[in-house]
Simulated assay, not measured.
Amino acid sequence: MKIAIISVSKKGQDLALKLKEKLDHDSTVIRTDLYHKNVKKYFPILFQEYDSIIAIMASGILIRSIAPLIESKATDPAILNIDDNGNFVISTLSGHLGGANKLTEKIAKLIDATPVITTSTDVNKKLGIDVIAKDLYLSIDNTSEILFFNKAILEGKEISFEVNPNKNFDYLYEYLNSVTLEIDVSIEFSSKVNTNEIHVKHDSHKIILKEREIVVGIGCRRGKECEKIYSAFKKSIDDLNIHESRVNMLTSAEIKKDEKGILELSKHLDKPVYFVELDKIKLFESKDIQKSEFVKSKFGIYGVCEPSALITAGFDSELIYKKTSYDGVTIAVAISKD
């Protein structure tokens, strides 16, 4: 998640600085940038560049600034509103698909504030279909149907999930069993459903949830044991609340293609591993990648796990877990656009 924090007062700016310091230590936050004043100038830029915008200002200023920019719940960034004193964190826009509700809870804990969430499914302790998609990193083929399905869930009606019996959907079953919000679901099996899809049905309506490719990039010291690499892998996906069965692929640089620990992990998890050519990594550019002069001096590239993950996840992919070190192992996680 790339976050912009924008403030208009000195008090708000001080709060923004304190919040950035805390978020910089969160591996699920790829970067946090600060902006101050000039809201009319900055907001159109922030809408295009960031996943989430935290506005520390009066709600009137925020609403007037973003009103002309709002397009769709499928594309608009998450917008949070915080007062100058940091008393309240309000989920203002894109609560589910954009992740504003979850981010509101996180930010409120960080600054000891009261979270304010008003979406109907949340306040009624129901599980929205768009929440499922966001939590499980799934795309939705027809976002206009979200309202119909969430209304049906609010009314306590049964929703049918249809999946392919030949695919491991443990991540879905565990999620539905562990979630505390209410939803009445039946599971059906059909070989006609693509293995990377979940068909959601009620009456004559249908939504297709499709897995976005989750790729775990791995870097490690020479000879690192599989157990140590697995431990780092597990800590990372646990931070993201991703079940092992939801991970699609492992990746690293070609200099690691004979690394026994990585190959054993691929076999243990029953996940393919792709080793990216060094020339591809050398040519790859992204402002979200952390550059290591040490790695550059040894291998001629600035990093292993982050560029490998982004390249393998495909064009326009994004990091959802920045490079994090675990006792000689580095992990980064990228996700495909669709």
Rank of each mutant, 00 (worst) to 15 (best):
E49T: 14
K323N: 11
C226I: 09
Y42H: 11
I140C: 02
N124G: 03
C220Y: 01
E155R: 12
L97N: 02
P44V: 10
L34P: 00
A78W: 01
E277Y: 11
H205C: 04
G219V: 04
K256D: 06
R221E: 13
S204D: 09
E213A: 15
I218E: 04
K260L: 13
K337E: 13
I54W: 00
K109N: 12
E285F: 07
K257D: 14
L181S: 14
F315Q: 13
I54A: 00
N166A: 13
K234T: 09
D316N: 13
L147D: 15
V247P: 01
I70T: 06
V276A: 06
S160G: 05
K298T: 12
R221T: 09
N85H: 12
I90R: 02
N142Q: 11
D135Q: 12
K296L: 15
D130H: 08
F315R: 14
D203G: 01
D130G: 03
A253S: 15
D170K: 10
I187P: 02
I229C: 04
L34I: 09
L319S: 05
K73P: 01
S144R: 11
L80E: 00
K210L: 07
I82K: 00
E174M: 11
K167H: 12
A113V: 03
K291A: 08
I30F: 00
G98I: 08
H268S: 14
D279Y: 14
L269F: 05
L310E: 08
S317K: 03
L136Y: 03
K206Y: 03
L310H: 05
K282F: 07
S308M: 05
V295S: 05
E158I: 07
R31Q: 12
I82W: 03
S336P: 05
L110Y: 01
K210M: 10
D258A: 15
K257H: 14
I183G: 07
K257Q: 14
K287D: 13
F233Y: 10
N164T: 07
A232M: 02
